[in-house]
Amino acid sequence: MMADSDRQIRELLKTRTRALGRRDAATAAADYDDDLVLYDVVGPFVRCGEDPTGRLERWIALYRTGIGHEIRDLEITAGADLAFCHFLVRISGTMRDGTEVGMWVRATSCLRRQGGAWTIVHEHASVPFDADTGHAVLRGEL
């Protein structure tokens, strides 16, 4: 069962990655739970009860291109009905104003299985900061 859960969760994340590349917010948001709590890199600090499709549509609209979403170092721990995973994700693309984006983000997703399907109930994305300057660290060697 755990191997099947691992496979299902990896596929869920791959589906989201492909959807962002196609600028398809509905598919990218499809596996979010109705009770999603989101600690996003972009403010506010906490998002609850917000339509995740609308949030992704607004984010995708800022890009001229599809959004690159490369997952690295994915680790999944799954039980019967709860799972969590953590990974690094590289966000890339060209924004409407011509700005080239290429940054690494740390991410953790918590999932719940209901009716045989996994949904994301909590997601946390963050970037480290330089303690000397207080500035976010978005690029560099991993």
Rank of each mutant, 00 (worst) to 15 (best):
D6W: 04
D6F: 12
I9F: 09
K14Q: 14
R16V: 04
R18H: 06
L20K: 07
G21S: 07
R22W: 05
T27Y: 07
A28F: 09
D31I: 12
D31M: 14
Y32V: 04
D34T: 14
D35R: 13
L36Q: 07
V37W: 02
L38F: 14
Y39H: 11
D40A: 10
V41F: 04
V41I: 10
V42D: 00
P44T: 03
F45H: 01
F45Y: 10
R47V: 05
E50W: 04
D51T: 08
P52T: 03
G54W: 10
R55N: 07
R55V: 14
R55A: 11
R55H: 06
R58Y: 15
W59T: 13
A61P: 01
Y63P: 00
T65N: 05
I67Q: 01
G68L: 11
E70Q: 12
R72T: 12
D73Y: 10
D73R: 13
L82P: 04
L82S: 12
F84I: 02
H86F: 12
H86V: 14
F87C: 15
F87H: 12
I91P: 04
S92G: 10
M95F: 00
R96Y: 08
T99R: 09
T99L: 05
E100V: 15
V101H: 03
M103R: 13
V105F: 07
V105A: 05
T108A: 14
T108H: 03
